[in-house]
Write a protein that binds this DNA or RNA. Sequence first.
DNA 1: TGAATTTATATCGTGCACGATATATTTTAC
DNA 2: GTAAAATATATCGTGCACGATATAAATTCA
Lengths: 140, 140
Amino acid sequence: MDELKLENQLCFPFYSISRMIIRKYTPFLNELGITYPQYLVLLVLWETDFQPVNDIAKKLYLQTNTITPLLQRLENLKIIERTKSETDERKTIISLSTKGHEMKLKALEIPYKLMEGINFPNEDLVQLRDQLKKMILLLQ
Amino acid sequence: MDELKLENQLCFPFYSISRMIIRKYTPFLNELGITYPQYLVLLVLWETDFQPVNDIAKKLYLQTNTITPLLQRLENLKIIERTKSETDERKTIISLSTKGHEMKLKALEIPYKLMEGINFPNEDLVQLRDQLKKMILLLQ
DNA sequence: TGAATTTATATCGTGCACGATATATTTTAC
DNA sequence: GTAAAATATATCGTGCACGATATAAATTCA
């Protein structure tokens, strides 16, 4: 019976922490005029520019039907560009605009500002990150 | 510069794991005809029946404008009932219907079925749960 | 080569999340 | 005792997530 107690749920803490951290991000992302999932897409593009929709989706463990409209919004905001691949016309290649590139400079301070607001012991964080990585592999 | 790499993000693993576990829940919850956030509300009600909207929202770290329409859907499904408090007319008291009570019996097996699909070492899980609890306290 | 299958993206519908706002009830303070 | 503030819920708009479906291009294979 205890297994149905909220306190003993496995997913609930992940679900809550995720939303709580996103809330902490929001004021900084508002300054850039983007949302958290849009920020994740930009992180991917800042690492590697010019990628098909599917590659971005896979890196974020999302489906293309989630990020297609998100990418259309980023295009409307003039942050990215969407062009058809010349070698494979099915593929839509996503690339950063000048504005998208410039946003990286402003974004650089976000991770620091964010961690200031959360006083989590650093040694715990390192260990936690390893556990979470293991967990993602098991869940895929 | 490395702080903007997807791999080094703090929130991304929580966001991904949360969605991945919810995906594992979905087939079992489909059998009950409910969604994961609706399941969370039922967990709260199965522990304590008859609660105002606000109490449920607080336990789930959600806002009332998120769960009000969710509760209306659960009412349409005849799983819960919504009645005004007699002592404070502002409060809407949420209670389980007969169907809502009966669903608990079917739900009892969900935690076991779910953990079967994830081979996470048990000693790690205990430690992880403690870390996550600490984190939630820091983030509130 | 041409039909069948696979791949890549897009579209549509539903249900969250959440900021902003509205409305009604209760409490507080003068 | 009544106006102001606080509380509780509801409504509205936008942007995800994701299942289901559509469409078009590329690949496979008979």
